[in-house]
Amino acid sequence: MNNEYVRRKVGIRDMKSCLICQKPTTVVLYNKSIPDLIYSCEIHLQDNPQFVLPIQSTEYIRTVERLKILKRELAVANDNDKTGSWDNWVTKIFSSKKSEGEVDDDNSKKANDSATPSPDQADPRKEYNELLDRMAQLQNDVRLFKLSKSMFESRIHQRQMMLKRIELQKREEQSYSNTDPDELTTSFNFPSTPTTKPK
């Protein structure tokens, strides 16, 4: 048995109650190997490790790794530039007043050059934001899920109990359906009614 469930949508007429909150839902988790159906709301599939865990694609894993690298690079760049700090903000105000009053073209050119990236270099902030958007889209597009260990064991146990009940019903039906009425009369001695002769 494989702990891999595929998220699918069913029609409104096939809607059933959610396993967790009992509200009607059209979202179904389907396991082909058992076979098993679990109706669940979309919200319960997101960030609910006691119920299900998403099985992420390799593209999602690569995106997360690249985001970690970019985050470290941006943190180092922010520490070096002091971008967004109080000191830098005050320095910018005084340097803008200074440039209005005095002609200090060399310093302003250096500041402008460091602020705007060259066309051959990609802006790490822009790439970081694009990767964040891509990661969010990949999270929404997840179709494969894995039940938590306790939940999966519970589903297997329920399945086994259901199969045992079905097997018992079949046995009972067979024992009653294989009975021949003639065989019953010959195998059992039914008491006969006493016969009396008329006087």
Rank of each mutant, 00 (worst) to 15 (best):
A77M: 13
K109T: 06
L138I: 03
R62H: 11
S114F: 05
T25A: 03
L163S: 08
S187T: 05
F94R: 12
V6Y: 05
E172F: 11
I20P: 00
P191L: 09
R155P: 01
I156E: 14
N178G: 05
Q50T: 03
A122C: 01
G101S: 12
K126V: 11
K146W: 03
E102V: 07
A136V: 14
D180I: 11
E100L: 12
I55D: 02
P54E: 08
F188P: 02
F51Q: 03
E102T: 13
V142G: 00
N80L: 14
N178F: 03
T58V: 15
N2K: 11
E130Q: 15
E100R: 08
S95L: 15
F94H: 11
P117Y: 10
D14F: 05
V142I: 01
N80V: 14
K149C: 03
T116V: 05
R66N: 07
Y39H: 12
K32R: 06
K146T: 01
M151D: 06
T91S: 11
L138P: 00
A75M: 02
P117N: 14
R134P: 01
R7Q: 02
I61K: 07
D123K: 01
F145H: 01
S57A: 11
P198I: 13
I156A: 13
S85L: 02
G11A: 06
H44S: 00
E65P: 10
Q22H: 15
A122I: 06
D36Q: 04
R66C: 01
P191K: 14
I93F: 12
K32G: 06
Y128A: 04
N140C: 02
S33E: 06
R134Y: 08
K98Y: 10
K170E: 00
Y60L: 07
K164I: 13
Q169A: 10
I156F: 08
M161Y: 07
P194L: 04
E183Q: 08
K110W: 09
C18H: 07
P49V: 00
N2R: 11
M151H: 12
E130H: 08
N48F: 00
R8P: 00
K71P: 01
S114M: 14
Q46N: 14
S57R: 10
I34Q: 09
Q50R: 03
V103M: 08
Q160F: 07
F190A: 04
V27M: 08
I166V: 05
D106L: 12
M151E: 10
G84F: 00
L144W: 01
S108H: 10
L70F: 01
E42H: 13
P198L: 15
R143H: 02
Y5L: 09
D14S: 13
T185E: 12
